[in-house]
Design a binder for these strands. Structure first.
Lengths: 209, 209
DNA sequence: CTAACGTTTGTCCAATCGGTCAAAAATTTG
DNA sequence: CAAATTTTTGACCGATTGGACAAACGTTAG
């Protein structure tokens, strides 16, 4: 669908990366419409016309960012397979998702911003690639349920609940920290969350003997 | 803290309500900076200067909206008390929260938008009123754990996970519908979600005998 | 050196933004 | 009714926005 790979110089590669990094920071905290090219340019340490030399439109930056984001964002779910033990498999999926919320909160917030506003730019991806992937994994989970490895539930809503609980620690970070207060809202909150979520999901999914 | 109650005519009451309703629609889908006074005025069926006659600044509309929102948004948590059976109490809290996500998705998205952007306008409320309320309810839940009524866990993260899973169906609605597809993404999705969440939390929290 | 090419910047533009203002229109009050 | 008050509007303003453009600057190849 895309044209032939654009030939780029070393400087172009570097500057484009610099801009994308700056844009991630700005977009994820202000949203698309709330962010200005000037803000991104300043965060990237260059002038506005200079930035527009590398990305001709504001939307192009956002688009490039979203494309990259989705690939890494769905990686944990892609890794879920029915090779190992079901509960172990789910446990490590939850852990990987929570680690992403901890290590890439800006990516999570950028994604949340897009979805919140009706996903105007990535709707086709949600209905296509994402739905296909989720359906695929839901089938695997259903297999585990039929085999009596985990309790019978709705696999799609199970996946939703894992997304919701883990991404909550990135998207609603300020609220989490405000409620936990200075003592418990420090770096340890992710380990507390990991312990809690593991217990909730694993105990809640263990087959009833 | 506020001045004496502003004396308002019938028209002022009605028009202000009209504007707030329109602003909820616009703000919740575009965010604060992404929304324009013109959009709100058009949605409310009046001219921009006319709107500004009732609310002098764009921020005033948003502020009024947030104040009202927080009261209703925290109502379900306020109702949580240790009068009844713990598991029943938690079950109905989850149900109430999910009903709010279903019936007031715009309010949920407005709140999510604010938090996502660092809660610049309601930070004091999070650290004050909200934290106090959550700490209070966490103490009740802790009591249940000590009494062996529910399994021992972190009460704060339990509350977070209930918030996350229920609000997910409002905030990420487009994604949920896209993934579920036309068949399962209809009106029944909230009942499916209710069944799933009830099972997850109740089974996950039942004391181990 | 010089020509070609890639990079950077200052300046500018039209559109949109939040908000003002005076005057017209509608409503309430006596 | 008429006066007073409230409501509505069109015209306008300065600031900010996304983006265009040509000229200047830097770099590299012959």
């Amino acid at each position: 669908m895309e044209g032939s790979a654009p030939r780029r110089t070393r400087i172009q590669q570097e500057k484009r990366e610099l801009i994308l990094e700056a844009a991630l920071e700005v977009f994820s905290t202000n949203g698309f419409r709330g962010s200005t090219i000037d803000q991104i340019a300043e965060a990237a340490g260059m002038s506005k016309p200079n930035l527009l030399y590398y990305f001709r439109r504001k939307e192009d930056i956002h688009e490039t960012l979203m494309e990259r984001l989705l690939a890494t964002w769905l990686a944990p779910l892609r890794e879920l397979d029915d090779i190992g033990d079901p509960l172990t498999e789910l446990r490590s999926y939850i852990r990987r998702k929570l680690e992403m919320a901890r290590d890439f909160p800006r990516e999570s917030r950028l994604f949340a911003n897009e979805i919140l506003q009706g996903a105007p730019r990535i709707m086709p991806l949600l209905e296509g690639e994402l739905k296909t992937l989720v359906d695929e994994k839901a089938a695997i989970i259903k297999g585990w349920m039929r085999a009596g490895k985990i309790v019978r539930t709705d696999p799609w809503h199970l996946i939703f609940s894992i997304w919701a609980t883990t991404q909550h620690y990135a998207d609603f970070d300020v609220q989490v920290r405000a409620v936990l207060g200075p003592d418990r809202g420090g770096d340890g909150r992710f380990e507390d969350a990991a312990r809690f979520l593991e217990q909730l999901f694993i105990e809640g999914l263990k087959p009833k003997g």
